[in-house]
Design a protein around this nucleic acid. Structure first.
Lengths: 229, 229
DNA sequence: TAAAAACTTCGGCTATAATCGAACTATGAA
DNA sequence: TTCATAGTTCGATTATAGCCGAAGTTTTTA
């Protein structure tokens, strides 16, 4: 290898199935304690602790200490992005039961991707924003138009405080199931939070998301029909 | 894990340092025989053969048989993309010598990324195409404008035969050093080939690329100054 | 001040897989 | 038809690292 960063180091950290299960759980945005992550990965607390120190050492994960609790999070959205990009070329999950199959279907329709909306719904919503002229595409980001400023204001999303955040504002993110870009960054996060507030969507297990009755009408008002999903 | 594809399977394939060295070599676009890949990874032919069957089995790599030779390639640009995205969060290569440091610098300025141009130069060139109105951004791709059609024709790139290829035409690709998108796909490839033909750039080791004297003037005519790089 | 909870460290066991020598197959050249 | 080249398969060895039991540290609760 030349003088490029060594990607195999990161790959090694993601390669172990226990660590992968923990990273997967951490894609869920909430900071989780070691006990919870041990449970998700089906290993003892000691084993989990060892894995977590490796992930922290490798800067894939960071810790916040609150008294005797230590909450683990993904270190950056880049880590989430890397996991999603690997998922694009990963072999599809083997479907062993009817229940699995319906779950797999749901997760492709709508899910959260780290801290924003992904799946068919995420892609469709981003498409609708562009269609209506609220967003335009730029190199690595989306740009909010004047029309968009008005819209997001009416949608009760505070663009000012989103922009202030020390992170990308309207980043593009590649989706593993749709292989299309969709809105991420602090604006993507704010949109997701607003959709929960409005009760347009509800959480299902494994980061899948369900569209409520109210949501169906809401998304239709933005030009997204049920058929598209 | 829910019913998502298992990214740890792919990570495991990339985690071994011998396989990583092979994948790294294959980012260089040329199909390479097993003997060559064994040499790059510093392992015996038997070991290399074992690794390569795993990579093929995992669909990260594909083979073309020509008589007793078997040429290995990355299976898709998505694989190259996944490697590049992992590289974004990988720890920087440790710089142990002055020679390493200048090599690391060179590789950030200009290099080939799989089959197209990347690094500062790749990003700057793509930026110039957009600036001059030859390309506009779309969701996952760039679109060639009418002005662009004329330009690429004058630049002696055959858009028709690039479009015909069974692959993305003007895809976006994320760069690990610049963290910016740049032009990939068959058009990105054609541009790279044309730059070699014009003798604007020359190959250095490890996929780094050097701008020639002729190239300096050429890139300047496209509005890319040496300072930008 | 004692006990419980959250987590880490240490040590030994075990399974996985990376490695290469040796033997094998298949293609191409002399 | 014989030899060389390119590559694969098999088997034995070895190193790595994942795993948990046991014991330790620190903080909160009682």
């Amino acid at each position: 290898m030349g003088n490029r960063p060594d990607f195999s180091y990161v790959a090694k950290l993601m390669a172990d199935s226990s660590r992968a299960a923990m990273l997967d759980a951490l894609l869920g945005l909430d900071g989780l304690p070691a006990t919870e992550l041990a449970r998700k990965a089906n290993v003892s607390l000691q084993t989990a602790s060892g894995h977590l120190s490796k992930l922290v050492e490798g800067e894939l994960v960071c810790v916040e200490q609150h008294g005797r609790h230590r909450y683990f999070r993904l270190a950056s959205t880049d880590v989430a992005q890397a996991i999603e990009t690997l998922t694009v070329i990963a072999p599809p999950a083997r479907i062993s039961s009817l229940k699995d199959s319906s779950r797999a279907e749901k997760i492709k329709i709508a899910r959260t991707c780290y801290d924003h909306l992904a799946g068919k719904l995420g892609v469709a919503l981003t498409g609708a924003f562009i269609e209506k002229g609220y967003l335009v595409e730029a190199q690595d980001d989306y740009i909010v138009t004047d029309k968009g400023e008005t819209f997001f204001h009416e949608f009760e999303i505070d663009l000012y405080s989103s922009r202030k955040k020390r992170r990308h504002f309207a980043r593009k993110c590649l989706d593993w199931s749709e292989r299309r870009y969709h809105l991420a960054g602090s604006l993507g996060h704010a949109v997701l939070m607003r959709l929960f507030d409005l009760n347009w969507i509800e959480n299902l297990p494994d980061r899948a998301v369900k569209i409520t009755k109210v949501g169906e009408k809401g998304f239709e008002s933005l030009g997204i029909t049920k058929k598209q999903l």
